[in-house]
């Protein structure tokens, strides 16, 4: 009898417990579901923001595979710390690119306030770069710099190598800034404002059913993500390996000149087009 009673009480309690919890859970579930419905597009947008690291990882893995199959150099010099350092360094470069500035300039062109910028006695080319430093860039740079320092300490990597890597970051970010800026500028001045925004944002617009009048998305990704990353990625490995330093740095220098030259040409071409109405 006692057992039955205990079971009944237990059952009752458990039902009550479940019911009470359901009272809280059900609305919560409904809310979550509704919220998820609303947020679906945001989630997609959020996921798309991982576009750059994803593309970078694809490049990195492709390079390792190519290295294995073509150069027949199976991971001789690619250790975990090298992989980590290269990843952190390249991510740091990505976030050093002050993407915001380009978008501000694009907005200014659209709103017409760019006319005032043309009237100012300043160097327009550099103004375009440093119009608005991105807070996100600063935060992410600090984060990746910390990651680099931790990796260096963990794997006892020589300080001279880290210094070289950081120097490489500065130069490479210059290459990436110029290639991306040039590519976006080219597309912007040739076609449409949407193209100046980040690739991810162009995709966002695609996601919310507003097809942008732009180059096909794969081409955009190749232009603004793959090409700049491929250019600097190989050099990061070379710096870590410590082989052919002269060759690596010369190549970096040539790429800087090419990238800056390309970006400047595009910028002044666009400016001329703007001035011609």
């Amino acid at each position: 009898m006692k057992l039955i009673l205990r079971k009944q009480i237990s059952l009752k309690l458990s039902v009550n417990y479940t019911y009470n919890n359901m009272k809280i859970l059900k609305p919560a579930l409904i809310l979550t579901k509704a919220s998820f419905k609303v947020q679906t597009r945001s989630v997609v947008i959020f996921l798309l923001s991982f576009m750059s690291p994803l593309c970078y990882s694809v490049i990195l893995i492709t390079q390792i595979i190519l290295n294995y199959h073509i150069v027949k150099n199976p991971f001789i010099n690619i250790s975990l710390e090298m992989y980590l350092l290269t990843f952190f360094v390249l991510q740091m470069i990505v976030f050093l690119t002050f993407d915001q500035s380009q978008r501000h300039v694009a907005k200014e062109i659209l709103s017409g306030s760019f006319d005032y910028i043309l009237l100012r006695p300043i160097n327009l080319f550099y103004y375009k770069y440093f119009r608005v430093p991105s807070l996100m860039s600063v935060v992410m740079t600090i984060m990746y710099l910390t990651a680099i320092i931790i990796t260096t300490i963990m794997y006892n990597i020589p300080v001279s190598l880290v210094v070289q890597l950081l120097l490489f970051v500065v130069f490479s970010s210059f290459i990436i800034i110029n290639i991306r800026s040039g590519m976006r500028g080219l597309v912007f001045f040739k076609r449409d404002i949407l193209n100046t925004t980040r690739v991810e944002e162009s995709l966002n617009i695609f996601v919310i059913n507003k097809p942008p009048e732009i180059f096909p998305i794969p081409i955009q990704i190749i232009l603004t993500v793959f090409i700049p990353y491929i250019v600097v990625h190989n050099n990061a490995f070379e710096v870590l390996r410590g082989h052919g330093m002269f060759y690596t740095w010369t190549l970096t220098g040539i790429w800087i000149l090419l990238a800056v030259g390309f970006n400047r040409c595009v910028w002044y071409y666009g400016l001329k087009r703007y001035e011609s109405g």
Binding site: S111, G112, S113, L119, R120, P121
Partner: peptide
Amino acid sequence: RQNEFKKAISFVMAQKSQ
């Protein structure tokens, strides 16, 4: 568009803000 020229002139556009 020399800098000296830019310092000598000013343009106010009511429809656009500086």
